[in-house]
Simulated scan of single mutants.
Amino acid sequence: MIEKDKGRLEVLARIEEYEKKGWWSKDVEEDPPTIPLTPDKVDYLNKKLKNKIATLFVNIVAIHFIKKLVKTGQMIIKDIKGIENYEAIKDSGAVLTCNHFNPFDNFAIHYALFPYLYYKNGRALYKVIREGNYTNFPGLYGFFFRHCNTLPLSANFSTMKNFMAAMKVLLERGEKVLVYAEQGMWWNYRKPRPLTVGAFKFSVESNVPVLPIFITMNDSDKIGGDGFPIQEYTLHFLPAIYPDPNKSAKENMEMLRDKNYAAWKEVYETTYGIPLSYSCENSENN
Rank of each mutant, 00 (worst) to 15 (best):
L9D: 00
L12D: 01
I15C: 13
I15N: 04
E16S: 12
G22P: 09
G22W: 10
G22R: 06
S25L: 08
P33Q: 09
T34H: 01
L37M: 12
D43Q: 09
N46A: 11
K48N: 11
L49H: 11
K52C: 07
G73S: 06
Q74H: 15
K78G: 04
D79L: 03
E84F: 06
K90Y: 02
D105F: 08
I109R: 02
I109E: 02
A112C: 13
Y118E: 03
Y118S: 00
G122S: 05
F143E: 08
F143A: 06
F145K: 10
A155D: 11
F163G: 04
A165E: 06
M167S: 12
L171F: 06
E175K: 03
V177L: 03
V179Q: 05
V179M: 10
Y180F: 15
M185T: 10
N188Q: 15
Y189P: 00
P194V: 13
L195W: 13
L195K: 08
F200Y: 15
F202N: 09
V204I: 02
N207P: 00
P209F: 06
T216F: 04
T216N: 07
S220T: 11
P229G: 07
Q231I: 03
Y233W: 10
F237C: 13
I241T: 13
P245G: 03
S248Q: 07
A249E: 15
N252W: 03
A263C: 10
T271S: 11
I274P: 02
S277Q: 10
